[in-house]
Design a protein around this nucleic acid. Structure first.
Lengths: 346, 346
DNA sequence: ATACGCTACTAAAGCGTTTTAGAAAGCATG
DNA sequence: CATGCTTTCTAAAACGCTTTAGTAGCGTAT
């Protein structure tokens, strides 16, 4: 019940050795050590149910065995898998995961402050890839000796941070290529916002695929959204007037919105229109019909980010940037175009 | 850049006072203190950009200003809002949030060990409400002086833990009542698993509402699922053979599955069948049609849980249990029953 | 015999706070 | 003039660990 927590001193006394010896046994440093002594110490540790005091240890080692995670946009569908992946990697390495959420640039900055105050060993920041994001506070943290790794953040090439980035361009190409392969030529695009690198890149992928297939780009077939359900719905309504036979929607929530619009319009998917989404498949796979998606390996991103952070702690000079591949998950919303005219009331 | 982190000693020197004075100023304890001295100290703090070392502080106060959060079932739709709510409450109180995920009873136990090793001040555990859950490790933590509050966990009344619980029974009643009010009499139920208190309670609510409305219970109108999309789909297919005019589905993922089944069957919602879901509305509101839901105030649960934890730290003897109300969000899947026969191929 | 090296351990300083006990200075009281 | 009371500040111990420098004991080379 309320027995005093065992301390290293009490373990030392119980084992009849000095504290230094206990410390050496537990850290496994000095290997010149009598087997009998080691065993006596371990027995004492076990019998007293000793657990080292992290605070005391941190005080001298100047490390906390904790990694900070700052998550932007908690409503983002990528939030859970990133967090889960990061936590798993932390746990595997014996690190704790300190979580902070951020709604905007300012709360992100406060989150970084918090992490610096708490002296986490490294920081992982998941971002919304804004083109004009301010990174100074991250650079400052990195310069102060706290490795920072950015996930999905738009960074200049010479930024001092390790980073994980998704191959949005290739993802956009794959999505569009899939539609081309099915025989579509009149392929629309509901794009991400122009101030987000993800939006820009996915669109570039879309355009590249069209060009590669010798399909002329048609500006009226592209509508720019903001990744929200509402924008997906609105823009699909608008885009349908152009009678595409397929649409590549650059976000998962927008794809759900598009589906709603199509349902209102009486357009059948995939019979009258094919649809490919982009993002976290968990969100769209349970729609009806199940939406074909380009999958962002988000849990992996969380995992890789903390691995990069851990590595940077060892070799602070070696910045690493990791590009993660996307993959196409074909489900029920894509099919060859129907011959003949489009239908619907639009 | 790499200037040494300021310590309390350097602040003291800069301000020309003792460390004790600096400490007193910062903690705001002693109020008998010359204004001029206080200002000198604060100026020194600011100019040196001093940040207290948490580890050193923890070592003497024996508190870490950190709360642990253990989340069961990361794929649960409640994961993000609970986490967000908890984090917000922590931040507001100047606490950090240490996150650990758990897939099963064993990893939950390891999570608790981790939290005890890290000496968090309190522990919040989000659970899956299993009827036969083992709580001994939680009781042990509480007994060891670390307040534990359980969210959505099935606990005996005399459990020593503070707890947050949703009113699943009332939620089930509200959902069913809504259907009754619309004029439905033949109301089916896709229930949660029998080994989860949530499932049992929601079903009891359903049955209570029927009884109150004088509608006889019909066993074939109830199917027991496991909260998965797949079970929702399968059971809806099965339940349709009984030709209900409305169904109360006890989970959000199951409701999505049910919608898929109905689409396959060619049953129109809500024209041919009304549907009410239960859980996190964020999951089902973007379905087409948008599903009427009984909303679990999950973010609030996370927030309240850490508030209870904080309070329990002050008054360890006062265990508190908080029951959170649910509310009905009416959307597009519920309507009065059609007169005449049911339709569909089923 | 002395110096040396090796093995297996230990003493003690130090990490950066909080907190307890108390000191110095000024002033009123008997 | 001694005493006591305030007010404002300080000295120093303590928290529980890691780590550096070093020692005791003993065998071996010179």
């Amino acid at each position: 019940m309320s027995e005093q927590q065992a301390t290293m001193r009490s373990v030392a006394v119980a084992a009849g050795v000095s504290m230094s010896t206990v410390s050496n046994v537990l850290s496994g440093r000095h290997e010149q050590m009598a087997v009998e002594t080691r065993e006596r110490v371990l027995a004492a540790v076990a019998s007293l149910d000793y657990q080292p005091n992290h605070a005391a240890r941190s005080l001298v080692t100047k490390r906390t065995a904790t990694i900070g995670l700052i998550m932007s946009e908690v409503t983002n569908s990528l939030y859970p898998p990133v967090t889960v992946g990061a936590e798993a990697a932390c746990r595997r390495s014996g690190y704790g995961l300190l979580l902070a959420n951020a709604d905007d640039a300012d709360s992100e900055r406060r989150g970084v402050d918090l992490m610096r105050a708490k002296r986490v060993d490294a920081l992982v920041v998941f971002a919304v890839s804004l083109l004009d994001a301010d990174n100074q506070h991250l650079y400052a943290a990195q310069a102060a000796g706290m490795p920072v790794v950015a996930i999905n953040r738009h960074l200049p090439v010479d930024a001092p941070l390790s980073a994980v980035w998704f191959d949005h361009t290739s993802g956009g190409r794959i999505a569009t290529q899939h539609l081309v392969d099915l025989g579509h030529r009149r392929i629309g695009h509901i794009a991400g916002p122009a101030n987000r690198m993800t939006g820009v890149h996915r669109r570039q992928g879309y355009e590249a695929a069209l060009t590669a297939a010798g399909i002329p780009r048609h500006p009226t077939l592209v509508a720019v959204g903001d990744y929200s359900f509402a924008s997906g719905e609105r823009l699909m309504l608008q885009l349908w007037r152009e009678r595409p036979t397929a649409v590549f929607v650059a976000g998962d929530a927008m794809a759900l919105g598009a589906l709603r619009a199509l349902s209102r319009l009486g357009v059948r998917v995939p019979d009258d229109l094919s649809l490919v989404a982009f993002g976290n498949p968990d969100l769209v796979r349970y729609a009806t019909p199940a939406i074909t998606t380009v999958d962002l390996p988000v849990a992996m991103a969380g995992r890789v980010a903390v691995e990069l952070a851990l590595r940077r702690m060892q070799r602070p000079e070696e910045k690493e940037v990791r590009l993660l591949d996307t993959s196409l998950l074909i489900r029920e919303t894509t099919a060859p175009p129907r011959r003949g005219k489009g239908i619907g009331r639009g």
